[in-house]
Simulated scan of single mutants.
Amino acid sequence: MARVKRVLFACAVALTAAGCATPPVVKRDILEARAWRGSALTTYGRQMVVDAAAGHAPQTVTLIDVNARAEVAGDADQRARILDRRVESVRAELSRNGIAPADIAEWPGAGPDGLQTFPPADLQTKPMVVIAHY
């Protein structure tokens, strides 16, 4: 099982949407299998989201990756429904920890083999971006 990793990425693209001269710093949190019990956050997963909310800072975008593959039996539609519920669980936990719903965006991932390191321009103004790989 892969470990939960925290990686900081410096961006190379200017933040034109906000008119800033310096680009945001991107922080990435990956919620692995032990962060989930079905589509609900475990105590461990909840703490990861709390830590991400606590690390909220100006000129920082936090990417919260909700486990690239929902490891459940079933078809693609069932896995997508579980991922949707996981995204909603993360959104609710962020809101409980003081992040305004307007500051949370969703970024559908490129797939299980894709690793997004920098959000598209329209999401660079959001402090929290929840990634789901469908």
Rank of each mutant, 00 (worst) to 15 (best):
A2V: 14
V4N: 11
V7L: 06
L8I: 15
A10K: 11
C11A: 08
C11N: 13
V13P: 00
L15Y: 06
L15R: 13
L15P: 02
A17K: 11
A18L: 11
G19C: 05
G19R: 03
G19N: 04
C20P: 02
A21L: 09
T22P: 03
P23S: 11
P24S: 02
P24I: 04
V26L: 02
D29R: 11
D29L: 10
I30Y: 05
I30G: 02
L31R: 05
L31Y: 05
E32I: 03
A33G: 06
A33P: 03
R34N: 06
A35M: 03
R37C: 13
G38C: 11
S39G: 05
A40Q: 15
A40V: 12
G45K: 00
R46F: 01
Q47V: 02
V49Q: 07
V50W: 01
A52Q: 02
A53M: 00
H56L: 14
P58W: 10
T60S: 07
T62I: 12
I64F: 03
D65N: 11
D65A: 08
N67T: 10
N67W: 07
N67Y: 08
E71I: 12
G74T: 05
G74L: 00
G74C: 01
D75I: 04
D75F: 05
D75G: 13
A76H: 14
D77L: 07
D77V: 05
R79S: 15
R79C: 13
R79K: 15
L83K: 11
D84I: 07
R85M: 09
R85Y: 06
R85V: 03
E88H: 12
E88L: 13
V90T: 08
R91H: 10
R91T: 11
A92F: 09
E93N: 00
L94P: 06
L94T: 09
R96H: 10
R96G: 09
G98K: 10
G98F: 09
I99F: 07
P101D: 09
A102Q: 15
A102T: 14
A102S: 15
D103T: 06
I104R: 03
A105H: 02
G109F: 13
A110F: 03
G111F: 01
P112W: 06
P112F: 08
P119T: 04
P119K: 05
P120N: 08
P120D: 11
L123W: 04
T125I: 14
V129I: 09
V130Q: 00
I131C: 07
A132R: 15
H133T: 06
